[in-house]
């Protein structure tokens, strides 16, 4: 049977050529100046702080520490998409943020230089599995200490106490706190505690959820939502990144103590890190780390007291 045949299709080569063109490139060496994403723009002080690396470290009875010494490096799970907390530069691959400074600080107290840290990206859903599988030695990733998590992992700290707050556009004065959310579109991460709190306690707000706060902030700056809610530390990171466009309301309505997640049962390491946090608070390293990262948002919080549960 004769059939109607179509014409030849346009050569696929055109598409291929475009792709190659995009990949090859009018190249420039190195990384671009950070367009407001890196540590430089979010930090208060300009030079990266350094921490004295301990030389006489003797820890016995910690399987995690034994693993670290035999590997010659410590593997730390951190966030990669939270400016000011833990963010990976998509060009250089370097991590920056308060959690990153805290990681360097903890490594220094364990006698390890920053070169001996290997950062691994974690998302909220895989922090416990990473610790249980031994993929990472510790997790420093805006990790709230709570009883449910304590059943499967151990926590040192807290090294910071965050609270749920609201991020709004800089020119928006109508949202003064959680009670002013009626009829507003509020964005958070699906399944997160802040999202659940809005749904349960402020049902007159319209909740919009995504899988990452960076998407919520994107929706906020393009006027698709009116506020983003989560821990103030995270929000401050975004506000510091775009100070002209965004601001934090500054009325925290919960307490979220951030801890260092450790494999369950490693009490020796937990005590060591608790000592290290206390030492960092008293010798000023904690403040150096804070000022360099979250300090740009114009806050000066008190470091929290360690909770040796």
């Amino acid at each position: 049977m004769r059939t109607i045949r179509s014409r030849h299709r346009v050569s696929a080569l055109a598409g291929v050529a475009t792709a190659l063109l995009a990949l090859s490139a009018c190249g420039q060496e190195g990384s671009p100046e950070t367009a407001g994403g890196g540590t430089e723009s979010s930090g208060g002080s300009s030079a990266a702080p350094t921490y004295a690396v301990a030389s006489d470290v003797a820890i016995t009875g910690s399987p995690t520490y034994d693993k670290i010494t035999s590997a010659g490096k410590v593997v730390i799970g951190v966030k990669a998409d939270q400016p000011g907390i833990g963010q990976k530069d998509p060009g250089s691959g370097e991590y920056a943020g308060f959690d990153i400074e805290m990681a360097k600080l903890m490594a220094a107290k364990l006698g390890l230089t920053p070169d001996q840290i290997e950062f691994v990206e974690t998302v909220s859903a895989n922090r416990e599995p990473f610790l249980q599988q031994g993929t990472v030695d510790m997790v420093i990733a805006s990790y709230t200490i709570n009883d449910k998590r304590k059943e499967v992992v151990d926590f040192a700290g807290p090294y910071y106490v965050a609270g749920q707050d609201l991020l709004v556009r800089a020119d928006d004065d109508s949202i003064t706190g959680p009670d002013a959310l009626a009829g507003k579109k509020v964005c958070s991460v699906e399944g997160s505690t802040p999202a659940t709190r809005i749904r349960d306690e402020h049902p007159d707000a319209t909740l919009v959820t995504f899988d990452a706060y960076s998407k919520c902030v994107q929706q906020l700056t393009s006027n698709a939502v009116d506020a983003v809610t989560t821990d103030d530390a995270i929000l401050r990171g975004y506000a510091a990144q775009q100070p002209d466009a965004l601001k934090v309301v500054g009325e925290p309505f919960s307490e979220e103590p951030y801890g260092i997640g450790l494999p369950k049962g490693d009490t020796v390491l937990r005590n060591t890190l608790n000592d290290a946090i206390e030492a960092a608070v008293s010798d000023g390293d904690w403040k150096k780390a804070y000022d360099f990262t979250l300090g740009g948002s114009g806050t000066d919080p008190e470091p929290p007291a360690v909770d040796r549960y």
């Binding site: 190249g27 420039q28 060496e29 190195g30 367009a35």
Partner: peptide, 8 residues
Amino acid sequence: PFTYSDIQ
């Protein structure tokens, strides 16, 4: 940014 070698 996409013209820099690190990004590529």
